[in-house]
Computed example of a mutant assay.
Amino acid sequence: MDAYYAAVEQRDNPELRGKPVAVGGSAARGVVAAASYEARAFGVRSALPSVTAKRRCPELIFVKPRFDVYRAVSAQIREIFAEHTDLIEPLSLDEAYLDVTENKQNIGIATEIATLIRARIKEVTGLNASAGISYCKFLAKMASDLNKPNGQAVITPAMGPGFVATLPVKKFHGIGPATAAKMENLGIETGADLREKPLAFLQEHFGKAGGWYYRIARGSDDRPVQPDRPRKSIGAEDTFTSDIFELEVAKAELAPLVAKVWRHCEDRGFSGKTVTVKVKYADFQIITRSRTIHGSIRCEGKLRELAVSLLEATFPASKGIRLLGITLSSPVSESDTLEAQLSLPI
């Protein structure tokens, strides 16, 4: 979807249409969750600190997120996908992979399917979508950004290796700024540079990810579309209107985040064994503290206990805290749970 959260807000509030809109944050605190294309023209992007966004675009309008609405619209879009295929792998509320090799309407051209889906989304939701069509997930993702907004692009098997060769590695999906900088220090600036490096070299410098970089440099990605991809984590975070310096205040702010995470865990039947607490300071430095237990966390009280102990380890704070977050991860399977039960002493 194109500028999804912001587009929903502009759809529902005519006064926002044609204006620079940022969802999330405020003029003084927080970060931008999504930005309209009018705001992007000023360099406003998601994850940008709100104060920086306002500096870049003085006319920027901040809107509180309405995730219940975004989820409802996302469900409508999923229903449209399901008219064509059951092989749907959601990445987020506004993005998904679809395998249309075999599709319910027996349409032989993937670009035609993408055009139909985009038109149907516009008809049902009033929102614009863009599509990328290719023979593998990596290139479909890269193609989806080529003709945004409200467009689509194709990367054929014949085009794939050449497309990757000319692409700067910093634009590769899944390669962040730190990894891109490391690659550039190793003389790797484009896909062609990456393809020249032997597998052993990439594994030496990037570990397990080296094999992945070796394959995508050749336009190769054999990952299937996974309709039932299991959730790996559930988290929540909050940015405060005033910086926090005291432990007791931080504990009080952490409590509702713990409750929110546990509520989502119960709703989704999710169970995990690793708790991570995230702390962002006033200067935007971020630290995390994690702990993994044997078995699984079975109640909100245990989650709170572990989160508080991790938070305490970050005090005394030498600078103000502007954001706290908590995540439960390392999903526990039924076999893990059964093993833990059987290991209990009698």
Rank of each mutant, 00 (worst) to 15 (best):
R215E: 15
M159K: 09
H205N: 15
Y213D: 08
L116E: 15
I117W: 02
N103I: 05
K104C: 07
A140P: 00
E189R: 14
F201A: 09
A217M: 02
K122H: 06
P227C: 08
S144C: 02
K170Q: 15
S233K: 08
R118A: 00
T190V: 12
L194P: 10
G108P: 10
A192I: 10
G160Q: 10
E184N: 12
T111R: 11
A217L: 02
S134D: 10
A158G: 13
V225H: 04
K137T: 07
E196N: 13
G160L: 07
I234D: 03
N185S: 09
R118G: 01
P168Q: 14
N106A: 12
N128Y: 12
K171S: 11
A119W: 08
L116Q: 14
L167P: 14
L127H: 04
I155Y: 00
A119D: 14
K182G: 01
V225M: 03
N103E: 06
A192T: 10
E196L: 11
Y214W: 14
M183Y: 10
A158I: 12
I113P: 06
V154D: 12
G162M: 10
A110Y: 03
S220R: 14
M183D: 13
L202N: 05
S92I: 01
I175E: 11
G211V: 09
G187R: 08
R223L: 06
S220A: 13
P177E: 11
Y213M: 12
D99M: 01
G176M: 01
Y213K: 05
R195V: 03
T190H: 12
V154A: 10
K141Q: 01
G151P: 07
G191Q: 01
P161L: 09
S144G: 01
R215D: 15
N103F: 02
A140K: 07
K148M: 00
D193A: 11
G160K: 04
Y97Q: 01
A140M: 04
L186V: 08
A140I: 03
I109K: 15
A131E: 06
N147H: 12
T166I: 14
N103P: 03
A181E: 14
A217I: 05
D145F: 00
S144L: 00
K182W: 00
E204W: 11
P230D: 09
V164E: 07
N128P: 13
A178I: 08
T190I: 13
K208W: 09
Q203K: 14
A181V: 03
A140W: 00
A96M: 05
T156C: 09
P157A: 13
P168H: 13
R229D: 07
H173M: 06
R229S: 08
L139K: 05
A114V: 01
I188A: 04
G174R: 05
K197D: 04
I107R: 09
K170W: 12
R195H: 05
D222Q: 15
E95F: 03
H205M: 09
P157R: 13
Q203I: 12
L98Y: 05
A110W: 06
L146H: 06
A114K: 03
I216G: 02
P177C: 00
I117T: 07
R223T: 10
K137P: 05
L146Y: 00
T125N: 01
A180K: 08
I234Y: 06
Q203R: 15
G126Y: 07
A129E: 05
G211C: 07
I117K: 00
G132N: 03
Q152Y: 06
I109W: 13
K137A: 08
Q226R: 09
P227G: 04
L167K: 15
T111H: 10
A217N: 08
P157H: 14
